[in-house]
Design a protein around this nucleic acid. Structure first.
Lengths: 179, 179, 179, 179
DNA sequence: AATGAATGAGCCTTCATTCAT
DNA sequence: AATGAATGAAGGCTCATTCAT
């Protein structure tokens, strides 16, 4: 199961959506196409599993962030985690961001828990913000947008990117929704 | 030609990438598949034409922005244009942003003119910024990310969104690359 | 008309059957596809016209051969003509030989006059041959086979090839159908 | 696999190049189009397989010919084999001879082994011939030309045809390249 | 007569999915 | 449970031919 999901990740990463087909994934995983369908009822299910796997990693990091003493530290930790993760396998991350938006998958990938978690962090980092839910959505979009673009450009300097993302995030928080 | 491109836009908008095939586009345009191929050598060419059409509209706006007296006004105008345009046909805009990233099309869609234009605006709005090219790339990614996400969520309040985008943009500029 | 046929010859020669389509021929001829269809009711008619044009050239040579004093000289002249002509535009000749065999064209290209003429020459060159019709068919096949193969190989030495073809022709005549 | 190739042979035989398409072959073979593509990566590969199947049969005969005591007997055996085989399915043989010449397939069908084998036989049958390679090429063309033409004409008398081919072959050898 | 945009049947090929073994 | 051959709907594209101008 896990090896199939990882195979899916690798195929997506190396071949893009063009080459992302069930037969290729099965081959890469070293299992038969029949076995793949034993574990996943269809291609979309496989994609969802992959998305969930990546999301889970970030979710864990977000939980750690919650443990930070200050709100600011929590948000900074979260940004660092996002940057690091997204840039670790930039192609994969970007492609999954796209896949996540497909209407067929929208219902399958539950983002609410994630969003609430981020909202919590935002709330703690900017307690006086008038619309923390909106802000958390915006911040998520900002980070994702910046990091995907950086990945596309082939940037490798994590620290620099992280600094810029922080500038955007805290700049946004400072200027939006001032109580 | 133009009607085929518009048909392509509509198909992409309503059916997504799944249903975006040349036969569907031809049908929607009310022409035969043969005619479509008389004007566009292939599916990708059609996609590129659509991307260029949308890009051109924004490019025109960017030129207007350059005419603004203050740098800040220019940047604000640009943000407004981006928000308005992207939210006019949100699904289409989002899908084209994705399509633009496809390796096969990367070479076809010349983004450099666009980028330079934005960089010019950024330079004027933040003359003391240490890395205007990087900043313009980041800002483009921020705006695109925020607006795409808003479109996905179904937001309709342009003014509110524009305010938030401004917060992010100017917040980023204020905190990054301070001379 | 003639220019369209020549255009057909050139397209066939340079692009092969793959690229031999009516639009390409019209383009090469510098006329519209509509005009092409004004002169030729269809693609096959165009092909037939081309075959006939090439056959006619050889037919003229065959008539000259008939004027030769000795039968042997007549046959030798004919061989020379065949070799020369076939090797002048080898690709075209080979392709036309193939096209000629297509069932759809078999009825359109009247070979009987040609065959009778050759039979006459053979009869004069080998008066004692028991089956001149069969012989002329065989000889035609031999010459065509040898010259097409030579063309395919890229042979350019006309004299050498002609010598070898003579050897085959006269060798065949000497050993077959001895009265 | 073999049944698909045989289906290809039959389609080619009965419908000619016109009707020789992968769907027709699959239908005739009683398999789905998908299965056909599981065994052959493309239409050309199927054609090549068919050519190779037919070539192999002749190659086997050529090996037998090599075992003959006298050179003359070997050559005669080879001629007989060629005549018999080519006239067994004349249409198929002719069409494959044509297909073999298609530029796209030239590289795929290795003829050198075959040619060397024939050259060996020729060398043994006419040890004093000055240019055995040229001669074997010519003889191959002669035989193919004669037998294809006979097939086209609908000849069925194998013995007669074989006699005439022998006349051409040995006549050619006697008169060309005398040491 | 000439033009060439328009047509659409039909071809090659892919790939998600099934099912007998 | 695993296998992988088989399936066939569907999509990209070509090109002979037509017909309004």
């Amino acid at each position: 199961m896990a090896s199939i999901v990882e195979a899916a990740a690798q195929v997506l990463e190396t071949e893009g959506f063009e080459g992302f087909n069930t037969n290729a994934v099965a081959r890469r995983a070293g299992v038969s196409i029949g076995s793949l369908y034993q574990y996943f009822p269809g291609k979309d299910a496989l994609t969802v599993a992959l998305i969930r796997r990546e999301t889970a990693r970030f979710y864990d990091d977000a939980l750690i962030a919650l443990g930070k003493r200050s709100g600011r530290a929590a948000l900074e930790y979260l940004i660092g985690a996002a940057v690091r993760q997204q840039l670790q396998r930039p192609m994969l991350a970007r492609l999954l961001d796209i896949a996540e938006g497909r209407p067929a998958l929208r219902g399958e990938v539950n983002t609410t828990a994630m969003e609430e978690l981020i909202t919590t962090v935002v709330r703690r980092a900017a307690p006086k913000h008038a619309r923390p839910e909106t802000a958390s959505g915006d911040l998520f979009a900002i980070v994702r947008g910046m990091v995907d673009a950086a990945g596309e450009r082939g940037e490798r300097d994590l620290d620099d990117l992280e600094r810029r993302v922080r500038a955007a995030v805290f700049g946004y928080l400072a200027r939006s929704g001032a109580a």
